[in-house]
Nucleic acid binder design. Sequence first.
RNA 1: GGCCCUAUCGUCUAGCGGUCUAGGAUAUCGGCCUCUCACGCCGAAGACACGGGUUCGAGUCCCGUUGGGGCCA
Length: 489
Amino acid sequence: MSETPVRVRIAPSPTGPPHVGTAYIALFNYAFARSQGGKFVVRIEDTDQARSSRHYEEAILRALRWLGLAWDEGPDVGGPYGPYRQSERLPLYQHYAQELLERGAAYRCWCSPERLEAVRQQQRQAKLPLRYDGHCRTLSAAEIAACLRQGQPYVVRLKVPSRGETVVHDAFRGAIAFDNQQLDDQILLKSDGFPTYHLANVVDDHLMRISHVIRAEEWIASTPKHVLLYQAFGWQPPVFMHMPLLRNPDRSKISKRKNPVSLDYYRRQGYLPEAICNFLGLMGWSMPDEREIFSLEEMVQAFTFERIRLGGPIFDLQKLDWLNGVYIRRLPPEELVRRLYDQLITPLLHRLRDTLYLRRLIPLLQERLPTLGDFHSLAAYFYQTPLRYDPALLVPKGRSARETANVLAGAAEWLQRYEGPWQDAELESCLRAYLESTKWDARSLFMSLRVALTGRTASPPLFATMEVLGRELCLTRLEDAVAALQKQS
RNA sequence: GGCCCUAUCGUCUAGCGGUCUAGGAUAUCGGCCUCUCACGCCGAAGACACGGGUUCGAGUCCCGUUGGGGCCA
């Protein structure tokens, strides 16, 4: 049944920061490989010299590793079919281009950019599809020899059959037929000796024994050219599976103009890698039991391509936020502290590092964090001194500033005299006793206190917050609030 | 424009001919909990793009239209 071992790959171009689309495709390659006991390969497609950089390559690998999508073979770990960087495989492509030439499946083309532009111009005017007109396809042996002798630079083009059709078998969509007349005589080898995507991709997938090409839908249109190449070489093509394309909210292909796409962004923002994987696993795929929260391992366990949907899913930040919050809430507090340090290296955290303070805040903040990054604004009043806020917030509806000042001053005095433990439940009893002595309602008093102590109208529960802030800071802040109100009235 | 892909609530999706007066999640709105927020719980509103077939029966199969998207420029 299993004729060929499952080997899949992702082939990112290191021309920019790690992209969420790369992670998406990597996830499904990974899940398929693992579920089949196959191999997952990373190959770097860096034949675009001008735009590729080692810096981006490292960033991409780092991001994939961060997500937990470990690969079996790749530029960093090596493997039996290396090298795994196309820039280190150049002679291979030249060799295979030569083979194509010899087999008559490709030809050299000496057309100048000017001529090509002129042809295109004409086709545009005649409203014809814009394709190479095949000028050099028909060069005689003598003409070719002459050009070669003169050492003129040339490109190598694929000789697409002028008739018939090329059928692409997509495992999700079935047979897709392309009229050969619609296909361009694609350039395979550029005049500088570098291969184009099409040649390098096919040669490498074959040499690396890739069994299934799982890639994004945007590649469907170039697949017939790849099929033609496999045929020309006499190679068995892999199984093609084109995943739907992630979309912006306006349904266009996901792009940085309309949606954050860098995995580095999501990491810095404080999204957990497991939440991102889970979220991507929900894009076009679902668990058999409709569970929405699942780990990478669980996805692998349950993985099957039958559950793929082909409509392009919109990358919805709102749902990601919810999911991320779920994962943050599930973290053991110690682990959350560790993640905060790992993912959010900031001056604030450095300051807190030597204290147990952070550990004490965590229970108050954990269920209020959509992302780790929200820690900064949520925790601000635990370390900022003095607090900055609008004193008007201290005054409840229907009360005057003067009244409020008196009640807060009273509370400060009451707390001053209080000698019990500075703890949640005890503080509540203490302040409820104080509440009795005023004519205020709990809601108003506690809101005033909340604003005085945190500078906000929304905070974690008041008494637990007071416990963490500590007696001294609480009393200082109450005095500050009273002073601010007195200055106002 | 040509070729190709695609189509269930705003969004992610379940559904693989009858159990669908279409289920879940998220977002939204309302309620409960409550010192506020959040979490949690309960509830409301919200979709099979349209038209033809096939069939006893279609969200589910086929064709077309329309919408969306990709590729080539």
